[in-house]
Design a binder for these strands. Structure first.
Lengths: 129, 129
DNA sequence: ATACAAGCTGTAGTGACTACAGGTTCAAGG
DNA sequence: CCTTGAACCTGTAGTCACTACAGCTTGTAT
């Protein structure tokens, strides 16, 4: 019998987050015991793990849900999943480039700042018109 | 006379965001005209630009504010600014590494997905135990 | 029986915005 | 002067993805 605590452990998703995902319809509601406790199936735990993996990769929850829906279709095509993954890969690459620009700018700023100067080049540059 | 719209234009910070920064105490409140409209000085516009630049670099608002406070000190030391910048540089580097890991994982997933297969390797891997 | 852990729902908060609603003031044009 | 539309105001609520209670019930171990 898989209670929510166990599902959390097995899937890696925080209990509160599991409830949130159910509330938002990201995953389906599990059956309940007579006392109202959630009882998860193995598939439901797998689904939670799926969402977590998508989130770990930086996919928005809405897209993670879309991908999960694809897994539930009998006659699934790889194409949709590939499209989503490829598009997201582009976004990751773009984000890496942006962060590399920030990295360069910070390195430059820090290099300018070599002494206990009264006039700080970092602050001056951020303030400049 | 610099109204909020002009301040927004000159600083690159959205009007609503300017109001938010003032509300949160990130920047000081400007003087007002007799009718209650905000009147910004050049320094106040510079400060807004400063915050925007920090935000663009990924610094949390609280840290941007700390840096701004440093600029307002008469006898400022470069050390604090350098500490903040160096620490943030580490975080940026860490974030880049993480994204590069995600990038590799996505590339691998996509490479597995080479046909209109009924069984999608991407989805399977995300679902695997 | 008792005590504590695990579970429940509902609500509110986080960080950094963002978007109204409903109102006032200003500036330009007729 | 009047009208109109833009710009401004405050207060509130919403976004995204959680996260943390409060106050209550149930289950388990001793």
């Amino acid at each position: 019998m898989i209670t929510i605590g166990k599902a959390s452990e097995l899937s890696g998703v925080v209990i509160e987050t599991i409830r949130y995902y159910e509330r938002e319809g990201i995953v389906s509601q599990p059956d309940r015991s007579a006392s109202g406790r959630r009882i998860y199936t193995k598939v439901e735990v797998d689904n939670l793990r799926f969402i977590r993996r998508c989130r770990d990769m930086g996919l928005p929850v809405s897209q993670a849900k879309s991908l999960l829906t694809l897994t539930e279709q009998q006659d699934i095509s790889c194409k949709s999943a590939q499209d989503i993954a490829s598009h997201h890969l582009k976004e990751i690459k773009s984000k890496i480039s942006e962060l590399q620009r920030v990295e360069s700018a910070l390195k430059k700023l820090i290099a300018q700042c070599q002494s206990e100067s009264k006039k700080c080049p970092i602050l001056d540059e951020l303030l400049s018109d």
